[in-house]
Write a protein that binds this DNA or RNA. Structure first.
Lengths: 162, 162
DNA sequence: CTAATCTGGTTTCTTTAAGCAACCTTATTC
DNA sequence: GAATAAGGTTGCTTAAAGAAACCAGATTAG
């Protein structure tokens, strides 16, 4: 596809997408969160081509989203485990799942019911919140002037070409 | 790239990624949240190829993430605006941004400081929360048995091949 | 000890999509 | 009525995704 590289982009979303923004990476991370750790298991569960899986796993390891550990049992067995950086993708994956469930529900499938292990209660919708925990929409936020980056004002100030 | 289609996937993350999981779509949505609405503005801000931008915009409109409105000024001018479904990607975009800022900070750029328009206070980290608003990690959640889909148990139960 | 098998890949080939640049159409401005 | 702008479309090139075959080290079966 002749992808554009975002490594040096001043936008942290672009940099994030550079690491996990392709079709497979987030699905690999998702399955890793579900407990998958082995090459063959990823391959079978995802139905991904082996060479692509190789590439994605290597890249995720490079980017320290996963770590590759030699599982001592015998010798040449490996496991891919989430790092803290990888586990930190949890809200993103869950937010994506909730969005998918809300806007593209599968007719035959109940939306994922993820529950708190302690209380057994269903988790909340992932949302952007103010300091007090109240939900914020895109209209409710702004970027203070002098913000050092690619962001202009949120939901405001279309860069008029003139 | 011969991408695999996920439309019919039983996984809602896969279905979500099918709509906004490519390199550009989420960046288009991000810029739309920043206020960009015009073809040329997207093109210049993103540095995306025009044909790809066309394709992405059309797809996002098809998927009802954006709507294309004829802006009456003169006649053949259009604006691409977020729908509710599109605005609903806000937590995902913000979570991605926070993740990028945390794990791949730009040396010369301060992390995005997004603030509540009312109070002026910085927003929270986007997180998965239990019913009471307490943060949950991937280890703190589970999927009740009988969940109707692709999910096995979160952070548990590696499908032993046997 | 050799053959079959499992795991974790690598290689080759084909298909498809991304990137680039040129072009095109409708309107507007000069 | 020429130049410019918006919003595309077309064609070509390049690079990545997919499929499938092959491969090497370790394990188990006989």
């Amino acid at each position: 596809m002749a992808r554009k590289r975002f490594d040096d982009s001043s936008c942290s979303v672009a940099r994030a997408l550079n690491e996990v923004g392709d079709w497979w990476s987030l699905l690999v991370v998702l399955h890793a969160m579900y407990g998958t750790r082995r090459f063959v298991d990823f391959q079978q569960e995802l139905g991904i081509a082996r060479n692509i899986l190789c590439d994605r796993l290597a890249r995720l390891v490079d980017n320290q989203v996963l770590k590759k550990v030699e599982v001592g049992e015998h010798g040449s067995r490996f496991e891919y485990r989430l790092t803290e950086k990888g586990r930190d993708l949890f809200p993103i994956v869950i937010a994506l799942r909730q969005w998918g469930d809300k806007w593209n529900p599968a007719p035959d499938q109940a939306p994922l019911d993820l529950r708190d292990r302690e209380t057994g209660q269903t988790i909340r919708q992932v949302e952007v919140q103010d300091a007090d925990g109240n939900p914020l929409s895109v209209r409710d936020v702004f970027v203070p002037e002098g913000d050092g980056g690619s962001a202009r004002k949120a939901s405001d100030s279309k860069k008029k070409t003139g």
